[in-house]
């Protein structure tokens, strides 16, 4: 599975990349909305793990910029929205919502894989 992780926090993209690669996935990372869109278009990932709030743009902006996502599924991460992990913010067409901070990175990896189906 080709996975794109977009988050402005390098340590988060680093650890998700490392954990997911360990599970045999192809993982690319981007540390901003603009670069994320660039990689997304080039990579055409099966799964995009997207941080909701980033300094250059927010997830909803990224999603509208991408427009037709093709086969790409989206998991949204945020510290600002929702109360519980797994709760889907109603306004955005996404597979899953993950609340930050994470308790355990491996659980998150499970959730991502599960969302990908």
């Amino acid at each position: 599975m080709k996975i794109l992780v977009i988050d402005d926090e390098v340590l988060i993209t680093m650890s998700l990349k490392r954990a997911l690669e360990k599970r045999g996935h192809t993982v690319e990372v981007a540390n901003g909305g603009v670069s994320g869109i660039e990689v997304w278009r080039r990579m055409k990932p099966d799964m995009v793990v997207l941080d909701f709030m980033m300094p250059d743009m927010n997830a909803d902006q990224v999603l509208s910029e991408i427009g037709d996502r093709g086969a790409s599924k989206v998991v949204l991460m945020s510290a600002y929205l929702g109360d519980k992990a797994g709760e889907k913010p109603p306004s955005l067409p996404i597979e899953l919502f993950i609340k930050k901070p994470f308790e355990n990175i491996f659980d998150i990896c499970d959730l991502i894989e599960k969302a990908a189906g």
């Binding site: 988050d7 402005d8 926090e9 390098v10 340590l11 988060i12 680093m14 650890s15 998700l16 490392r18 954990a19 360990k22 510290a79 600002y80 930050k100 901070p101 994470f102 355990n104 990175i105 491996f106 998150i108």
Partner: peptide, 20 residues
Amino acid sequence: SHELNNPLTGIRSMAQILLN
């Protein structure tokens, strides 16, 4: 707090991976 949450989450996640 939100600003700190992100890097701390990253640190904790990385620590968990490395621990593994």
